[in-house]
Amino acid sequence: MVINIEGLDFAYGAGKQTVPVLKNINLTFPEGQITAIIGQTGSGKSTLVQQLNALLKPTAGEVHIGDHTVTNKTKEKALTPIRAEVGMVFQFPESQLFAPTVIEDVMYGPKNFGATDEEAKQAAEKALAKVGFDTSLYDQSPFNLSGGQMRRVALAGVLAMNPQTMVFDEPAAGLDPQGQAELLDLLRTLRDEGKTIVLISHQMEQVLALANQVVVMKDGQVAAHEPVEELFARPQSWFADQHLDLPETIAFQKEMEKQGFVFDHLAKTVDDLAKQLAGQLDSAKLTGQRSDQAGSQAQTGGPHHE
């Protein structure tokens, strides 16, 4: 399902009291890709993604969501099917859990959109399996779970409706590294299944690792919209102007460039960065430094051989 935004303006309020938030947005969210939306707090990211499932209607312009078109004049009733096709995972979705058991919480969405108990249960079990949730906890109260487990239940609640497009707002915030890695894998799986994935994130490492293309929002406008490699090749000063960080590997690369190091491509991972650095280091000096630094523990640590 492709989502296409054409000439969108959006303002909160009505009449003279309007507060313009989004200005002249033109964007396409392709199928089978992850589009990351980044930008400072208050840049309009959250308002923008609420147009993608018609939680907000444009003040001007059009949003094409699969076969649906949403304009300022679209009736509320026509928006309902869109909500099932575009799943939203808000920040800290576990705060919206409410049912007495895990399974009932995940079944709620499908039932709400007309599934029978049996269908809803199947969908819920499939979704819980997909997020790697322990089957023995299905009948637990979600409120007795750890933060990481609650997050999985909340994600399963959206997945159970099998939406074509999924929007994730800071999905990994507050998760431990393992939980984060598993979440990133889930997003990749969903993308590879052909879903349209939209990811809001402040974590640039995540954006670098996952996104096919990146939209940078600033003051309600699109400041950049390009493939991830192009974006992170921009100079450090550009990111500073947007109040954005660079991914750690790339920030380190740019730091080393100032010291005269040369890199032939952007380092997506620490291993890639190490490989590109190692070729430029004096191996004799490095070995010397290693044994100096290692001191008495040299026997156990030992130098590293490729």
Partner: peptide
Amino acid sequence: LQSALGISQT
């Protein structure tokens, strides 16, 4: 990064 460069973690 130190560990990826093979520098012993001391």
